[in-house]
Design a protein around this nucleic acid. Structure first.
Lengths: 250, 250
DNA sequence: CCGATATTATTTGTCTGACAAATACATGTC
DNA sequence: GACATGTATTTGTCAGACAAATAATATCGG
């Protein structure tokens, strides 16, 4: 067994993987500073540019962050839930925009997953978590706010709902599912001017949560998603009227 | 409004973000080749090293892949589901290893999410998907296979179950949840030598799927997760016997 | 002695130019 | 026509340099 005969991937990638493993296995602890780029270069016997490319790969995954100066360096980053959710939703929006997932699938997924999630929320929700849901809804009900602000509040509302389930793992995956639908919600909103319907359903969700009525929660959720799908179809029709269908879309 | 007065992040990061947006907005289509590094460097008015660091950030997210030679270059990569699942599970294992999520939460999440997922599977599963589940179970039942191989087959089994739900979004998030538990499963297996219990429950799951019995699926799932948690606790106790608690672990 | 300011050292960020390696394409030889 | 050879193109890596940020230290005035 030779050392490493048939390496096909680039050195910088290999180094990135090694460093990554060192982090996961705890050889580098979170918050700790890793050796300077010069020293890493010496240690691995490569140039600093290569080391930097490896570090940038890790930085793209929020695994390290760098700071300049004497006390600076590259530090192992404990990704916050926010950062994690962000990179996840980045992946999700990418999938959607590349057409790897269609809207029906996402809506179906949300029907099922968020359904379970809401049941959990009804069981576990603490008062302050319910209050957060309410706060988001209040923001959403402000008259005269922009589409963007409305959509932002919409996301906050659903995130608060998910948070009420009080489970990190569920939060992790549900944030992704929610984010994946944001572009569609945005599109729908620009055609469907009236937001009353959405707000009404949200209010229904909130009161059902307060009363811990699981059945009611499920009904309201389905109502919301049905409305979203219906609006989406209308928006698509409207769109194809004004903007000729791309016949030879190549 | 000046051009860009108060930028704090590095140029390479900014360029990476710009390229990323160009890809998402479809200015660069999937499979397409982007300009050579030299040309990008000219276009952005930076050095090639900077461009390369930006590209490595994107490569770390599986957004681009590079090839050498005349027809080579950096190409926009349509991430396969495998790659996506891989990077997701990478994030998940990271979260677990960094202790951002505890096992109870993951198991609870799986109870709920996979529960819904199995119901969907019972409704939608196509024959060939059921067959894949069966195939994975057969592999797992081979006598004398290593812990590693057993665990691999275990993942394949659960993935096949998820695939049976026939929904890309669900697959996306469930793969993550499954992967997050792999390290624990591994650890449990190294202490709990007997695999019969797991296989028995898996067989129960399979037959319940074949008969489309949703209630039975849920019961079996809970049984499996209960067993896992119980074994995990035992493993922890066993562990603390042989390996002194790290009192001053410095 | 103290405090504000200047200097210095360290480390990442970026630039420049070069060469190595892979690889498609053209060219030449038999 | 088949096969070897060269050649151009593009990424991968290297080496050394300077710029920018920043914390520690030294300096000077009170």
């Amino acid at each position: 067994m030779q050392e490493e005969p048939i390496i096909k991937s680039s050195i910088s990638k290999q180094i990135a993987d090694q460093l990554r493993n060192s982090i996961i296995n705890g050889r580098f602890k979170t918050g700790e500073r890793l050796p300077t780029e010069d020293e890493l270069a010496n240690r691995y016997g490569v140039s600093r540019a290569t080391i930097r490319e490896a570090l940038k790969r890790l930085a793209a995954q929020n695994l390290v962050r760098s700071r300049r100066g004497p006390t600076g360096g590259n530090f192992v980053n404990q990704p916050t839930h926010e950062e994690l959710a962000e990179s996840l939703s980045g992946a999700a929006t990418l999938l959607v925009s590349l057409g790897s997932m269609d809207i029906e699938e996402i809506v179906d997924a949300r029907r099922v997953l968020q359904g379970s999630c809401l049941k959990l929320a009804a069981q576990h929700a603490k008062p302050e978590q319910v209050q957060k849901v309410q706060a988001a809804l209040v923001r959403q009900k402000q008259v005269g706010i922009s589409d963007e602000a409305f959509c932002h509040a919409d996301v906050a509302f659903h995130r608060a709902l998910v948070d009420a389930a009080d489970n990190s793992m569920i939060r992790f995956v549900m944030y992704t599912t929610i984010e994946a639908l944001v572009p569609i919600t945005n599109m729908v909103l620009s055609y469907v001017k009236d937001r009353h319907e959405i707000i009404a359903i949200h209010e229904r969700l909130l009161s059902a949560l307060e009363q811990k009525r699981e059945d009611e929660l499920e009904i309201a959720l389905n109502q919301l998603l049905d409305y979203l799908m219906e609006s989406f179809r209308l928006a698509q029709i409207q769109r194809s009227k004004y903007q000729k269908p791309p016949s030879g879309s190549n």
